[in-house]
Amino acid sequence: MENNNYVRKKRGIYEFFFKRLIDIVLSLTVLICLSWLYLILAVLVRVKLGSPVIFRQPRPGKDEKVFDLYKFRTMTDKRDAEGNLLPDEDRLPAFGKKLRATSLDELPEFINILKGDMSFVGPRPLLVKYLPLYNAEQKRRHEVRPGLTGWAQVNGRNLLSWEDRFEKDIYYVDHLSFLMDLKIVFMTVAVVLRHNDVNSATDATMEAFTGTPEKREE
Rank of each mutant, 00 (worst) to 15 (best):
L133R: 10
N5F: 15
F186E: 13
S103K: 11
L49N: 01
F178C: 05
E207L: 11
L26G: 01
V66E: 09
F166S: 06
L114P: 05
G150D: 04
I54L: 12
M180H: 02
T149P: 02
R157E: 04
R157Y: 06
T205Q: 13
V30H: 07
R216Q: 09
M1H: 01
N196K: 15
V47G: 01
D105K: 00
W151S: 06
E143I: 11
E217A: 07
W162F: 15
L107R: 04
L131Y: 07
F95D: 11
G116V: 03
E218H: 04
K97G: 03
F186D: 12
S35P: 10
V191G: 00
P58D: 15
H175V: 03
E218N: 06
L176W: 12
L127Q: 14
D197V: 06
P60N: 12
R79T: 09
D68S: 11
E143K: 14
R216E: 11
R59W: 07
E89D: 03
P60A: 08
S35C: 12
D169S: 10
T202R: 10
E143S: 13
R59I: 00
R11L: 09
F17V: 11
L28Q: 08
D117A: 00
N5R: 13
I32K: 08
E163D: 15
A136R: 11
K78P: 08
F166L: 14
G96L: 13
I184H: 08
A94D: 05
I54R: 10
M118I: 04
K9I: 14
I111L: 02
Y130D: 01
L37K: 09
A94H: 04
E217W: 08
G116C: 10
R140Q: 15
L159E: 13
F110S: 03
K9D: 14
L182H: 06
G61L: 01
F186P: 09
L193E: 06
Y38N: 08
Y70K: 10
V144H: 00
L126C: 12
R145S: 10
D169L: 13
L92S: 00
I13V: 07
L44Y: 05
V53S: 05
D164S: 10
I184M: 01
K215A: 08
I184Y: 05
R124Y: 09
E163I: 12
M118G: 03
K10F: 11
